[in-house]
Amino acid sequence: MSALQQRLAAIDIALYYLCFGTCRLPVMPRISRLVSKLGDGGLYLMIGLLVAWLEPDRGDQFLLTGLFVFAIELPVYCYLKQLIKRDRPCDRFDDVIPQIVPSDQFSLPSGHAAAAFVFATLLSVYYPFLMIPAYTVAVLIALSRVFLGVHYPTDIMAGAVLGLLSTVIGLNLIELL
């Protein structure tokens, strides 16, 4: 590992402990678990189906675009997880007790952050008045994963970038079709 990589890893770990340290209030794990569950995936599909059913102008397009973009994001996310194979903080440090059981072994990128940013970006494109609440929820979902002890800050940043890029690529591909 180069000196730059070591320095970045040290900053990431320090940021992790700063975030995880703020989670010492007894109520924080419960709140973080609830917020994290918003990003488990099923809610995105339910909202997409509901929008398609209730919004006649662009609802079907929103749903189909979402399915297309998630079909781009998910395989890239899985590939990166297996390529990078970064241990989760709860698996690396003895003093970190995870507040949930992670869905897989590796931490980079955060799938919850990626999916949350895909959905927030799609909502912002189709329904701009929802931009601020959508990105606020996406950030909270991403941060909850750090508070729960299963991701580093760079994991959620990488997930957010993956979600944003997947959405931009997907929207541009749809325009070409």
Rank of each mutant, 00 (worst) to 15 (best):
M46H: 08
D95S: 11
Q82L: 15
P102A: 09
D40N: 15
A138N: 10
G149T: 03
G149K: 06
Y152Q: 03
F62K: 07
Q82W: 11
L140N: 09
A142M: 04
I97N: 05
L130R: 05
A160Q: 00
M131E: 10
I141C: 00
A138P: 08
S124H: 08
L49V: 11
A138T: 09
V101R: 15
R33S: 12
V76H: 13
E73H: 07
V69Y: 00
A142Y: 05
D57A: 14
A115F: 02
G111A: 08
P56G: 07
F119W: 14
K85F: 02
D104N: 11
M28N: 12
L67W: 12
C78K: 14
V146A: 04
F106C: 06
S32I: 01
M131P: 00
I156R: 00
S36H: 06
A114W: 11
L83S: 12
A52R: 03
H151E: 03
V96R: 10
K81D: 10
A116H: 04
A52P: 09
L83K: 15
G48P: 03
L63A: 08
V35P: 04
V139H: 03
P98V: 07
H151Y: 10
Y79L: 12
S32P: 07
P56S: 12
L123W: 06
D94N: 11
S107H: 05
L83C: 10
A113H: 00
P98K: 12
M157L: 14
R58I: 03
G59T: 07
P133D: 14
P109L: 13
P56C: 11
V76M: 14
R88G: 05
V101T: 15
Y135S: 06
V146G: 03
P102Y: 03
S110C: 08
L43H: 06
I141V: 04
L34D: 10
G59F: 08
I84Y: 10
I72F: 09
A71G: 12
L38N: 03
L148P: 13
V76Q: 11
F68E: 00
V101M: 12
L148F: 05
S110F: 02
G42E: 04
S107Q: 06
R86T: 01
T121Y: 09
G111L: 05
D87P: 05
S144F: 01
F93L: 04
L162Q: 06
G39W: 01
V150T: 07
H151S: 09
L50R: 01
G48Y: 00
G42Q: 01
Q61Y: 12
I84R: 13
F70D: 09
M28V: 15
Y126L: 02
V76C: 15
D91K: 02
L130P: 04
L34N: 14
